[in-house]
Design a binder for these strands. Structure first.
Length: 610
DNA sequence: ATAGGGTTAG
């Protein structure tokens, strides 16, 4: 406080009236700021220039200085001169423009704390009695979105109403975005309320709402909104399409994705790099990684995201060698991989059993690229060892790594224990996990699976009882399939479908046919203490088999079948699907919680470890 | 001077 008081007195003494000399310095400085932006040495030079010419408290110069840079120190420096903490009334020259600039500068920064600063300056602005103008709220709301607090969002919303900017489209659109960024289900509800009640809307309004749903994982709703938008005669642009494609990727709806691509062509929607990346990601996640690769090849300019999307795409499909060679090609092309690219290539190695390659890449991160591995990278390595069959090594790796292992990592290890028969180790880790996080239902499921494999039915039943007692339910497995541009969703034992009778008949027929080809039901996975015949029935009711039966009934012979599951494929469905692909001569592409399985001629691309 | 967008371990 004292220090800044002294500082400001000194400056007041230094500041002469508008002599030609200071005017010249001011002009020079503004020109400098106009031409150089945001590079560190230049910023330091300009800073020195400001000090040398006594421009420290020239609002014009400081405003420009703060706004020309995303460098947080420049912004702090400028704002501390513009708004010394002891100052209670602002100089008369301080107007909304000046406040807006500082608020914008802080709103554009990356960290949560400095975004809060933007809101602090908005409060200062009000305290000083300076009225916000139509530019103020988009900046303030942007900061609010970064802070992601619903409470603050509502406060600013109140302010928007108070200053009568609720009809301004820029404000409405940013407000929707802001509410969508607030954590929790409640935020979207407010966003929808603004969306529904706004007197005006344009394509940005729709895009903000669609993008909000996508970010919250409500992809089906996002696609629904896109259809509504078209009914309303509002034309999407490339930004809207990026969000819709991302929703489509999430749903795994290939037909819709292809339609979106042709729509983009038909309507001449400009193919920005982001749009191409979204297309690549969509095709990869909808099961057509070849198409993704083709699009990648046709791009005129690519970013690291383009490369990473294809690499991650190959990884998901178990095409590790292609992922690895694309990664190497990227590096040869002079593109420096980032941490996300490494996640892609490491997971490619793990899904394809390239243990040594994976080790080499992991070591090269720090050594060659100066990237400190994050917990995700360690997670990839654990998975790499587990899938490679080295569960013990994975366990040791977990204990040595410089992070506290998280749930994801432990679950990777337990799953591997289950798959490789290290059941005692799996049991003890699961128990430990349940002790630490008693309300995470998937930990119980893992333990219960292990007891089932050990055929310890009493213990398994007890785990179930504890789950019931604590009010937890297993997430029901579901399988989705797109037929004639419509998504059909099945859950185990589902009888809600119009064709359910035919579907169940088909399931029985499938069972008979594949048994003749050598299929043996894997009843040990069924988590019920019942006799084997009933267990077999339970297996036949799995959502995946229902969806395949539905597909065999409703798609032409010889065409491929694409399924999207919310969980991992169970052992029995995996085995059955291999036989079905052979007996019915169908390629069956299944998207799992984690990866793709391409079933063809009785074999699966995952090489039976998933 | 203002708004909406792409890749991320299991």
């Amino acid at each position: 406080m004292i220090k800044s008081k002294l500082l400001s007195t000194t400056i007041t003494l230094q500041l002469p009236p508008n002599t030609p000399k200071t005017r010249l310095a001011e002009q020079t400085c503004l020109t400098l700021l106009q031409s150089y932006c945001n590079t560190f040495p230049k910023l330091t030079q300009i800073h020195a220039f400001i000090l040398k010419n006594g421009l420290q408290n020239n609002p014009l110069v400081l405003t420009k200085f703060a706004s020309s840079s995303s460098n947080i120190n420049a912004i702090h420096y400028a704002s501390s001169f513009l708004f010394p903490s002891h100052q209670t009334t602002p100089p008369s020259s301080y107007d909304a423009f000046l406040f807006n600039t500082v608020i914008r500068a802080y709103a554009q920064t990356q960290t949560h704390d400095s975004k809060s600063k933007a809101l602090e300056f908005y409060r200062t602005m009000l305290r000083y009695g300076v009225s916000p103008n139509k530019f103020t709220f988009p900046f303030v709301l942007k900061a609010c979105a970064g802070v992601a607090s619903l409470r603050l969002g509502k406060l600013v919303h109140g302010s928007v109403v108070k200053f009568a900017f609720e009809d301004d489209l820029h404000v409405v659109n940013t407000m929707i975005h802001m509410y969508c960024c607030c954590e929790g289900e409640e935020g979207v509800q407010f966003a929808e309320k603004v969306f529904d009640e706004s007197s005006k809307s344009d394509l940005v309004t729709w895009s903000a709402m669609i993008g909000g749903f996508v970010r919250l994982g409500r992809s089906a709703r996002a696609v629904g909104l896109f259809r509504e938008m078209q009914v309303m005669g509002v034309f999407p642009d490339e930004i809207t399409m990026v969000s819709v494609l991302s929703a489509c990727a999430d749903l795994g709806a290939l037909e819709l994705g292809k339609w979106l691509e042709s729509y983009i062509e038909r309507k001449n929607i400009p193919k920005s790099v982001e749009l191409c990346n979204a297309l690549i990601d969509m095709f990869a996640k909808c099961g057509d990684v070849d198409k993704a690769t083709k699009l990648f090849g046709q791009m005129e300019s690519r970013t690291i995201v383009s490369w990473t999307s294809v690499i991650a795409g190959f990884a998901m499909h178990g095409r590790g060698l292609e992922a690895v060679s694309l990664f190497d090609e990227m590096v040869e092309n002079g593109i420096t991989p980032d941490d996300v690219a490494f996640i892609g290539v490491l997971s490619a190695c793990s899904h394809s059993g390239l243990v040594d390659k994976g080790r080499t890449y992991f070591k090269s991160m720090e050594r060659n690229f100066n990237i400190v591995p994050k917990i995700e990278h360690y997670g990839c390595m654990v998975d790499l060892f587990c899938r490679g069959g080295f569960v013990k090594e994975a366990f040791e790796f977990v204990q040595k790594m410089p992070f506290e292992p998280n749930q994801i990592i432990w679950r990777t290890v337990i799953t591997a224990c289950h798959a490789t028969g290290e059941l005692k180790l799996g049991e003890s880790i699961s128990k430990e996990l349940i002790k630490n996080e008693p309300m995470h239902e998937s930990n119980y499921v893992l333990l219960s699976n292990i007891y089932a494999k050990l055929r310890q039915w009493e213990k398994k039943t007890k785990v179930r009882e504890i789950m019931d007692m604590r009010g937890m339910k297993k997430v029901p497995g579901s399988t989705m399939i797109e037929v004639n541009n419509e998504m059909h969703e099945f859950v185990a034992g589902d009888k809600s479908h119009d064709q359910y009778k035919e579907i169940y008949e088909m399931v029985d027929e499938m069972g008979r046919e594949i048994k003749r080809a050598g299929y043996v039901p894997t009843t040990s996975q069924v988590l019920l203490d019942i006799d084997d015949e009933d267990k077999e029935d339970a297996l036949y009711r799995h959502s995946e088999k229902l969806a395949i039966a539905f597909a065999l009934l409703n798609t032409p012979p010889g065409t491929s079948i694409r399924l999207v599951k919310n969980l991992r494929v169970c052992e029995d469905c995996h085995s059955a699907t291999k036989f079905i692909s052979q007996v019915y001569n169908r390629e069956i592409v299944v998207r799992d919680r984690n990866r793709f399985h391409h079933f063809k001629n009785g074999l699966c691309s995952c090489r039976d470890f998933w």
